[in-house]
Amino acid sequence: MSESAAHSVARFARAERLVHRSVAILMGVCLITAVILYNGSLMLAVGHRHVVETVHVWSGLALPVPMLAGALSAAYRADVRRLNRFTPADWRWLRSKDRRDGTIRVGKFNAGQKVNSWLVAGATGVLLGTGALMYWTGLVRLSWRSGATFVHDWSALALGLLVLGHIAYAVRDPEARRGMRTGRVSTRWARTEHAAWVDELEDRSIP
């Protein structure tokens, strides 16, 4: 183990960072164009509805592409598996008032990160499906298009709030951002935030 490795641990593989960056850009474009399309004052100030709509639709259709392409990476698949699994300790962490004091030893992802990932994945799927029904107006009858608009609006609002929350947590934690930017985090940060994960890494490095 090299000296720099002792002070820091690998958190995200290059493929995962690439997926994160692509999704972030596409999600940002989707949300900004969504606000313009939805808000009457902004729409009338910006105009060019067809251009805004086309950008929105194609960024939306592209959004799942990096999410799915990530499956080519073993590290990405392993992390998706971790996010998918929920333990009794995760429930305790979610319900606990002082969840950040280290009493509950957290794995690579805490329960909040897991729940966020599920909601983002589910909302993305719902928005993709309802968006397709709204865009290709010949697919289903009018009342279903009305239903699709209803679901699309509320899911978009929910997803927008999730993304804002995600950004707010990232702004407060430079080391977490460094993990997503460079792939490595300090061992000290990892011990504080994800103690069980560090244990796991050390278990594996001991012969």
């Binding site: 699994r85 929920f86 333990t87 009794p88 897991k114 799927g125 279903w144 239903g147």
Partner: peptide
């Protein structure tokens, strides 16, 4: 893997809820 695959259930549940919303959303 440790724990139950709750994530998959939530995602599938949301997709189902979305489909239900498409069908009933107009009247809601």
């Amino acid at each position: 893997p440790d724990g139950a695959p709750v994530g998959r259930r939530v995602v599938l549940g949301l997709l189902g809820l979305g489909a239900l919303g498409v069908v009933t959303g107009a009247s809601v």
